[in-house]
Write a protein that binds this DNA or RNA. Structure first.
Lengths: 210, 210
DNA sequence: ACCTGAACACCGTTCAAGT
DNA sequence: ACCTGAACACCGTTCAAGT
């Protein structure tokens, strides 16, 4: 066979197809052989571009995390900073729930990830929070985001869906149930964020009055 | 070979050994063949006791979830109910961080799981929370617990550990770092729970005054 | 530099057969 | 009822070889 002048694969093309497979069939639905097949190539070819499957997944994770917005920590309102960060973070995970387990284990590119963590921490400290509190607020906001995302992720494993589909044979109903669960998740997240930030504000006042 | 009078395996013995393997080597470190080997048996023998690996894992998950305490929802203080629930829930996950991804996808025994959910929801409604809020409080408390547990889980994947070990060759230091991270997680969780419940109390007052 | 064929060392699970 | 040996249909990854 004649060698084509241009490479068959690129990292971007591999990522794109891999993410589509994960979205459609979950993390276990992605295999290097099947991915290669969809890209019209043999499995070992992928290893010319990514050293391992894990490296590929974390590269995708980095791509997704780039939409997380920490810009509001530049302003004077620390609560607004947390809110924008938490919402954009959650949105990034909710767009690809099957990727959540990978995203939870941390992105591969440490520099950009550390830069984000530094923006959060720096913003909180500039707003007058003691460093230790800044760390804890950053950590617990992450808990809220990750936990909410895990909830959407795990919904993919519920066999309840089948039960409901049997009970209500109209597909609309099943979709409505899924939509309703997503809505409860969204509302619960917003309520939790409100209560959490409200409680922190009170804590902040107590700290200042001391 | 003579057939022994007593079965070689039991569900309890399989669960015990499987959980030990998951604790020691992670979820990927558990294989039906290796597990069978440790139990002095061939892999297919396990299928006389569990239909699939997934069923085994979720049975272990159920066992772990049985330590979650929702008894304080019987009292009059809804916040105490949430606190006891959240803490015992988190403790159950923190004891076996590698099981978190399984525990996050929900236990298999729906009845006991639903009974717990009902105790939470019922306790909140009896305390005067509108049903919709009871649902959201239950959901967001779970987010906090699962998110905090995922954080411990993902720490197992950090290659940072190696970096630090290189920098500080004394193993004590590495252990201290891990302990420190666990401590930050514990403190952050408690702070988040305080702020969250504080914010909810304020919200509750506003709802009552309307 | 990029891709392939063949191979290694694994998986979960099934199934006929043994006791 | 419980366990085994052999087999099926997969995995991720390596490596020598080709262009």
């Amino acid at each position: 066979m004649p060698r084509p002048s241009t490479p068959l694969l690129s990292r971007a093309r591999i990522r794109e197809r891999a993410l589509a497979m994960v979205d459609a069939e979950g993390l276990t639905g992605l295999s290097m052989r099947k991915l290669a097949g969809e890209l019209g190539v043999q499995a070992p070819s992928l290893y010319s571009h990514y050293r391992t499957k894990d490296e590929l997944l974390h590269d995708i994770a980095d791509e997704l995390m780039s939409t997380v917005d920490v810009s509001d920590f530049a302003g004077t309102d620390w609560a607004a900073g947390v809110r924008t960060w938490a919402r954009s973070y959650r949105a990034a995970l909710a767009a690809h729930p099957n990727m959540v387990p990978v995203l939870a284990t941390g992105p591969a590119r440490r520099e950009t990830s550390l830069a984000r963590a530094d923006a959060v921490h720096g913003g909180l400290v500039r707003a007058g929070w003691p460093p230790r509190y800044a760390t804890m607020i950053g950590a617990s906001t992450k808990y809220l985001v990750l936990g909410a995302a895990m909830s959407s992720f795990s919904r993919g494993f519920e066999d309840d869906v089948q039960v409901y589909v049997d009970r209500y044979p109209h597909l609309d109903q099943a979709h409505r149930l899924r939509d309703h669960a997503d809505e409860i998740d969204a509302d619960s997240f917003e309520m939790a964020l409100d209560a959490f930030l409200d409680g922190l504000s009170a804590m902040r006042t107590r700290l200042a009055d001391r």
